[in-house]
Amino acid sequence: MKILFPFVAVIALVLLAMVGVSGGSLHFLFGVIIPYAAVFIFIIGVIYRVLKWAKSPVPFCITTTCGQQKSLPWIKQNKLENPSSTLHVVGRMAMEVFLFRSLFRNLKGEMKDSSRLVYGSDKWLWLAGIAFHYSFLIVLLRHIRLFAEPTPFFLHLLETFDGFLQIGVPRFFMTGVVLLSAVTFLFLRRIYIPQVRYISLSADYFPLFLIIGIATTGMLMRYFLKTDIVGVKELAMGLVSFNPVIPKGLGVIFYIHLLFVSTLFAYFPFSKLVHMGGVFLSPTRNLLGNSREFRHVNPWNYPVKVHTYEEYEEDFRDKMKMAEIPVEKE
């Protein structure tokens, strides 16, 4: 059920675009209104989520450390794993954001000889994760050619490296295949590893199916069905210059791709995908590991009313003496 529901949802999106465009000729809805709405929801939604996170107080440093904290001068500190200055924190955050350092630490437990539990390094998730994220980034950046005229300087450089194998025409881009393989691995992993399958929800499968759909339709358009790229750019340029036009002759496959992407953008702020912004706000990564160096006082501590033993004795001294309970002050 957890797999079936998101799968049906993605198929429904395909049918929706097919019926809407080829059956109902709702080109303006699928080509202009939905993409605008999606981008609007995406930008506003992400800002809303970040502001909401920023309202949560983090009074103590709750870093999870993986190295020696700053201590006596002759004990070597692990500055990146247990930062004590902003510069160190920037280094740790850069490793987290660009290299997925935490995922690199991934361990896997296995029963050896049916009685011994053994933990070992497991880098496959990290490898698929980093391949997926970077190829998705490059694919996204490559699309800038449809949204800018003239195209920015980095585009040609990116395409040269991406299509460096010079296979076929239009030139084969490596990132497309890497993206699809990596996201397929991330999906299969959820199915084949029983523990991961147990904790996987519809909210995990839906984005995976959606991204598989996006990559598949994208590559179909580029290599097999041959969408009119000039028409696509006309539509895209119309959108970004707030002068929307619907060029004739764009196939249904393009509208399916566009609806997938719009869905991803609109779904983004309300889903787990918003870890794009969240990674920067991970308290265990972005706080200083200085819990011993400084005393952290909870900012909303109210003055607690206390009644000390001395005051207690003061109140009951006579009664205590009568009951022959020893007192500190006579």
Binding site: V39, F42, I43, V46, I47, V50, L51, I144, F147, A148, E149, V230, E234, A236, M237, V240, S241, F242, P247, G277, F280
Partner: peptide, 23 residues
């Protein structure tokens, strides 16, 4: 952070202000 995000996300929009591109 929000400003950097908006600068990236809205790049195609402000990049095309005042530019005319014909088919």
């Amino acid at each position: 952070g929000i400003i950097v995000f908006v600068l990236f996300a809205a790049f195609p929009f402000y990049n095309n202000i005042g530019k005319v591109s014909a088919k």
